[in-house]
Design a binder for these strands. Structure first.
Length: 459
DNA sequence: ATCGGCTCGCGCAA
DNA sequence: TGCGCGAAGCCGAT
């Protein structure tokens, strides 16, 4: 059971030797102690050399359109992490400022001998990580604790579509979807530090954001809340998942994406629980396709694509067809602020926008319609991408991550998709419209549920 | 209600 | 080089 850490989950970040001091896990994307391969790798190294294991959360100033709701989620997640770390007697620290200063300072101050990061394909975190590895004088590596089959292992290029990525995932799933070993740590040696005190008020206020009280009442962040939602999903929703998941008026989705986004829960753990759940196979397969293939495809896209939010990253056929239609007349044009406030002519679009504002999460099916309409109602495709991503990253609890990037790029720029019948503005990009939604679900019910007034402090 | 056509390129078989 | 195949779309024909 306590299988050796699989080195294929790790990428080396420098050629420097490990020092004599403690092993440091730099927690960033994976805000959990449980089921975390990066922490397990760091713990194994510490045990092997009989040195202490430390965890550091390097709190940088807010970036990428983060709002109060994101700050709330992070702070609550970290409080739970600190408490759990205490139970394992692993010192958990928070340092403030830019990574390239705060982490090397910490390494020197605590005589750290080796650093392990968790994987994130996105800028700016990726560059921060690499710059820290260059600056410090000890061994540094990154472990993919997010994807079941490590992103840098499963494929060495940007995949064309889910169809090319899927067989690669399935080929390796058996080897990588394995139970997590128990976290083994070396008990703190005589004279070592006790659990550091954390000033939570300072943590909360470090990223200057406006509190988002309405939303904070509706969600509970962290590992325990996430696993509770996993249990609820498997019992109540999974048995009908494939039938109900695309109906935005039904509660047929997992509601796990914020927990996965913040690393509160491990997708591998969820996958193993779903595999052994007592639900029809077709529904389990449908969910596992979303959880594993589609989700991990997003990291593949972001990791191997430079400037992944630019139109230039799209397939050649998509760039060509959008260019051919760039001068097509737009019947409606809206600004960022009009979109943000949910003030378009389309009650269905406005309802989707307001669902995101109010609940921090737009239904997955509506996200496609929503993004495609932004393409239709803005002057050019790059503006559409920029607006859609900014809205996504500001208001989705699962925003500011690779899945949101790919969702927007799929909808607007045909990433991972194929060409369809040509029409104005969209060219050969897959089209969606109001009539299609009417065929699929009770549009009016959705509009009435979410279409009301909205607290305008939110936008 | 159901079905086929739309359109493109990957990746495998030859 | 040829060809099967994808697959959260729309739409018109049956």
């Amino acid at each position: 059971m306590s299988a050796r850490f699989d080195e294929r989950r790790r990428l080396s970040l420098n050629e420097k030797p490990a020092g004599l001091g403690p092993v440091l896990y730099v927690m960033a994307r994976e805000q959990r102690i449980e089921d975390n391969w990066a922490l397990i790798a760091a713990a194994a190294a510490a045990k092997e050399r009989s040195v202490e294991l430390l965890i550091l959360f390097p709190l940088a100033p807010m970036f990428n359109h983060g709002q109060g709701r994101h700050n709330y989620w992070m702070v609550d997640s970290l409080k739970e992490v600190a408490e759990t770390a205490l139970g394992y007697q692993i010192p958990f620290y928070i340092e403030y400022g830019n990574w390239v200063d705060s982490i090397p300072d910490f390494v020197l101050k605590h005589h750290v001998g080796e650093v392990v990061f968790d994987f994130n394909p996105l800028e700016p975190v990726r560059a921060w990580r690499e710059n820290v590895a260059k600056k410090i004088s000890v061994k540094a590596s990154v472990v993919d604790a997010r994807n079941i089959v490590p992103s840098f292992f499963v494929s060495n290029k940007c995949e064309f579509s889910a169809a090319t990525f899927r067989p690669k995932i399935h080929k390796w799933l058996k080897e990588f979807l394995v139970p997590f070993p128990r976290l083994q740590t070396v008990l703190p040696a005589v004279g070592s530090k006790r659990q550091p005190a954390i000033d939570w008020d300072r943590v909360s206020s470090y990223r200057a954001t406006v509190p988002d009280e309405a939303l904070e009442k509706n969600w509970r962040a962290g590992h325990k809340a996430g696993m509770k939602q996993v249990d609820k999903f498997i019992r109540e929703t999974l048995p009908n998942y494939d039938t109900l998941r695309n109906d935005p008026t039904k509660d047929g989705v997992s509601n796990l994406s914020p927990y996965l986004r913040w690393g509160n829960i491990s997708a591998a753990k969820v996958a193993m629980l779903v595999e052994k759940a007592d639900a029809p196979k077709a529904h389990k397969d449908s969910f596992l396709e979303e959880l594993i293939v589609r989700r991990e495809l997003s990291d593949n896209y972001c990791f191997y694509t430079k400037d992944h939010t630019k139109l230039a990253a799209a397939h050649p056929w998509a760039q060509k067809t959008l260019a051919e239609h760039k001068n097509d007349e737009r019947e409606y044009l809206y600004t960022y602020k009009e979109f943000a406030a949910g003030r378009t002519h389309d009650p269905l679009w406005n309802a989707a926008q307001k669902q995101m504002l109010k609940e921090g999460k737009m239904h997955g099916y509506m996200r496609m319609y929503w993004a495609k309409k932004i393409l239709e109602w803005t002057p050019d495709p790059q503006t559409a991408i920029d607006i859609a991503l900014r809205l996504n990253d500001s208001y989705e609890l699962d925003g500011r991550d690779s899945n949101g990037v790919v969702g927007v790029m799929w909808s607007i720029a045909g990433v991972h998709d194929r060409a369809w019948t040509e029409r104005p503005i969209f060219g050969k990009i897959r089209y969606m419209n109001y009539n299609g939604c009417k065929r699929k679900f009770a549009v009016k019910e959705y509009e009435e549920r979410y279409g009301g007034n909205i607290d305008h402090k939110l936008f």
